[in-house]
């Protein structure tokens, strides 16, 4: 598989604080890579190094086979879409005027404005001044701006942090559509549902180190306690270990028509994070 991002033993130290401690991972073309961790774990620092806004203290990071320290040049920047905490909008201008400026900078048709505003569901308010928008709407405009030029690689730093569930779901649908078109997405979040629903692979970042990296499904299987819970008609629940030895018991409950539901007891990504790091993902 072709890698778009390759990080090798990446270290970042601020003063005497090690923020990233020998990170090692690859992001492959066309995947949605989730970078999960609590606030202060080093997610944004990683994005800033990958987009050339910070230089590594040690180790290396390559984006499109180019050292991240050299990615900050026009020929590469047009391939990137970036949405981070320092992405601002012009408050006195309308949504449309903000996006029009970026159409000119990226040399794309202004017709794209309609497409991206539809994706973030803001097409009806494009003539509104940015200063009058809610935090969630502002976030959606910044996301729309990052998508304008159909970048090959999209960096999204907590893209749905200020959004309600309906809008988050819509954004997730849009991200999956982008993935279908071949866009690679590097997504940081501390929303485990978001990670589960859109990410092909996730990395757990804690204290500057990657604690786990795999597909969400594999992680759930790995940390599963291999049991199932049967919910019965009388309101009680029965927990059974997965395996042939319990097949007869399940069969008997079914014959007696006592089962309301059966589900396997796989942990959520949040449970796994707590298990691995010993702390909540907030």
């Amino acid at each position: 598989m072709e890698s778009v991002i390759a990080v090798n033993s990446l270290v970042k130290v601020f003063s005497d604080k090690t923020v990233l401690d020998h990170l090692q991972f690859k992001v492959y073309k066309g995947e949605i890579f989730g970078f999960l961790g609590p606030s202060g774990a080093g997610k944004t620092v990683t994005i800033k190094i990958l987009t050339g806004q910070l230089s590594p203290t040690d180790g290396s990071a390559y984006v499109f086979d180019v050292p991240s320290t050299e990615i900050n040049s026009p020929q590469y920047l047009k391939k990137l879409g970036i949405m981070t905490d320092n992405s601002g909008l012009y408050q006195r201008l309308t949504i449309y005027d903000n996006l029009k400026l970026y159409c000119e900078l990226y040399r794309v048709s202004v017709k794209r404005i309609g497409d991206v505003l539809e994706m973030v569901q803001l097409q009806d308010v494009q003539k509104k001044n940015v200063a009058t928008l809610s935090k969630g709407m502002t976030q959606r405009v910044i996301l729309a701006r990052a998508l304008l030029h159909e970048p090959e690689l999209l960096f999204l730093d907590e893209p749905t942090a200020a959004l309600d569930p309906v809008n988050s779901k819509h954004i997730h649908k849009g991200l999956l559509e982008l993935k279908e078109k071949g866009t690679t997405i590097f997504l940081t979040t501390h929303d485990m549902n978001e990670a589960e629903s859109v990410c092909d692979r996730v990395a757990f970042l804690d204290k500057g180190k990657i604690q786990l990296l795999n597909k969400p499904k594999r992680l759930r299987q790995r940390f599963s306690d291999a049991t199932m819970t049967l919910e019965l008609v009388d309101g009680s629940t029965v927990v059974l270990e997965n395996g042939s030895e319990n097949a007869q018991k399940v069969y008997e409950y079914m014959l007696a028509n006592q089962i309301v539901s059966i589900h396997t007891n796989e942990p959520t990504l949040g449970d796994i994070f707590v298990h691995v790091t010993g702390r909540e993902l907030v």
Partner: peptide
């Protein structure tokens, strides 16, 4: 102040 300069710097504009 409004964090918009970085957006310009991170665009393909020279």
């Amino acid at each position: 102040e409004k964090n918009t300069l970085r957006g310009l710097m991170m665009s393909p504009a020279s």
